[in-house]
Amino acid sequence: MSTCQREDAIKMRQKSALKRNANHAESAIRGGKEMSKVVLMDFFAEWCGPCKMQDPIIDEMKKKFGDKVEFRKVDVDTNYDLAAKYTIHAVPTLILEKDGAVFKRYVGVTNAKTLEADLNAALK
């Protein structure tokens, strides 16, 4: 096998793995079916400072809303297809979905008061 063929084979395996990873993440977010629940997706990256600032705010919302809201973290560096599907151009980006449709979208660090109000609105 030539070097070019080897590189092509490696690229194909990487693309396949990334696609499986994105499909798995989307399936996990959707629970394998269309969600009727409110879902807050946190698109982040490990290297992102503002994403680390968003984490305690999300943790606070998890405590307040418990299992009424499904919280999901999506690493944009390993879930390219899902990030592309939601046209994520900056992190942190939060996507609030209700009944499988985007209800609200936030780019940058979002404060607890705003998130709480919008989560309550989505639950109605």
Rank of each mutant, 00 (worst) to 15 (best):
M1Y: 03
D118V: 03
K124P: 01
G32K: 07
S36V: 00
L94D: 03
G66R: 08
K15E: 14
V76D: 00
V39I: 15
R30G: 07
L123D: 09
K85E: 15
L94E: 04
A9M: 09
L40S: 01
D42K: 07
A45R: 10
Y106G: 07
M41D: 04
Y86S: 04
G100N: 12
H89R: 12
S27W: 12
G31F: 11
K63G: 03
A90R: 10
K19N: 13
E116V: 01
Y106M: 02
T87Q: 12
A90E: 06
T87C: 02
E34T: 09
T87M: 05
V74K: 09
G108T: 07
V76E: 01
K73A: 15
S36M: 04
G32S: 09
M12K: 15
V74C: 11
K33C: 06
D81Q: 14
G32I: 06
F71R: 07
T110N: 03
K52V: 01
H24W: 12
A117I: 00
S16A: 13
D42Y: 04
Q54F: 05
N79P: 10
A25H: 08
V102L: 04
N120P: 00
K37R: 04
N79L: 11
N21F: 03
D55M: 10
S2D: 14
A122D: 08
Y86M: 03
R72N: 11
E97K: 10
F65D: 08
Y106K: 09
K104H: 10
K104T: 05
C48G: 12
A22S: 15
K62V: 15
C51P: 03
Y106D: 09
M41W: 00
M35Q: 14
A117F: 03
V102Q: 14
Q14D: 06
K52P: 05
Q14I: 12
T3I: 14
V69C: 08
K64F: 03
V74S: 04
K63W: 00
G31A: 05
M61E: 12
Q5R: 11
H89S: 13
G49W: 00
A28T: 02
D8G: 01
A22Y: 09
M61A: 13
P56K: 05
Y80H: 12
Y80M: 10
N111H: 08
V74F: 05
P50M: 08
K37L: 01
Y86H: 11
R6A: 14
D99M: 00
L115N: 02
F71H: 08
S2Y: 11
S36W: 03
